[in-house]
């Protein structure tokens, strides 16, 4: 049964996932070309100096892409379910409704994680080619909240989609999401979340269960 759910989820999001991967790869190519252009045509020592002491980010194109990825995956996964209340069918399968919905979320989460890890790996190889390992550490710490924002918005957007009560509840969930996600983007320069990323990670993990409440309300049919 779970295999079947997985297959159904895959059918829904495969094109979206492919589009996201292509977007990430384009950003990667752009960044790599920019770096190699600078090394070939100008003085990389001045560039290093800018990166280290003026805190300019050569990978800033990545900033909002994970967020977009989270929203897109969530949209393709849950929008078809709530239009014409198809989710009701899924919830009437001979399985515990919580494990059905958690499986759906787990599938989306895994897909997102796989895409993110793939792109982090690509950037890692590129950074190690151009810079010493200290830059890689800084890249990982600096982009961690952005990728975390991507996962968090996926969880939050899913519960927003499933939430049955449009005006008050959904609007409110959207507000909370914006408020929390903007905390993750409130950074200047690099390594900003070095001392606190684990706290935000913990909060985001907890947020991932918010879909359970929306599902419970959906099943109850509060409208």
């Amino acid at each position: 049964m779970f295999k079947a759910i997985g297959y159904k989820e895959w059918l829904k999001i495969r094109w979206a996932a492919l589009g996201i991967i292509i977007a990430f790869i384009l950003v990667f190519i752009n960044t790599a070309l920019t770096l190699s252009y600078i090394v070939r045509t100008s003085d990389p020592n001045l560039y290093w100096n800018n990166l280290i002491f003026r805190m300019s980010l050569y990978y800033s194109l990545l900033k909002y892409l994970p967020l977009l990825a989270g929203i897109i995956i969530s949209f393709f996964q849950f929008f078809p379910e709530i239009s014409e209340n198809r989710l009701k069918l899924a919830l009437h399968l001979p399985l515990n409704e919580k494990s059905i919905i958690l499986n759906m979320v787990a599938f989306g989460t895994t897909t997102l994680l796989a895409i993110f890890l793939f792109i982090i790996l690509l950037f890692t190889l590129m950074i190690l080619y151009f810079f010493p390992v200290e830059f890689l550490y800084s890249f990982l710490i600096t982009t961690a909240p952005w990728f975390l924002a991507g996962l968090t918005i996926y969880w939050l957007a899913s519960s927003i989609f499933v939430e049955p009560m449009w005006l008050f509840r959904r609007l409110f969930l959207i507000l909370i999401s914006i408020a929390y996600i903007s905390l993750l983007y409130a950074s200047k320069g690099y390594n900003n979340f070095e001392v606190s990323i684990h706290w935000f990670f913990l909060i985001s993990i907890f947020l991932s269960v918010s879909i359970l409440i929306s599902t419970a309300r959906f099943k109850k049919g509060v409208i």
């Binding site: 909060i203 907890f206 947020l207 918010s210 409440i213």
Partner: peptide
């Protein structure tokens, strides 16, 4: 039980967000 827990967690998160933004 899981539902109860997730409600409490969400309440805490709203408290956190409210205490930042209000």
């Amino acid at each position: 039980m899981l539902l109860k827990l997730s409600r409490i967690v969400l309440i805490f998160i709203v408290i956190l967000i409210a205490s930042v933004y209000l």
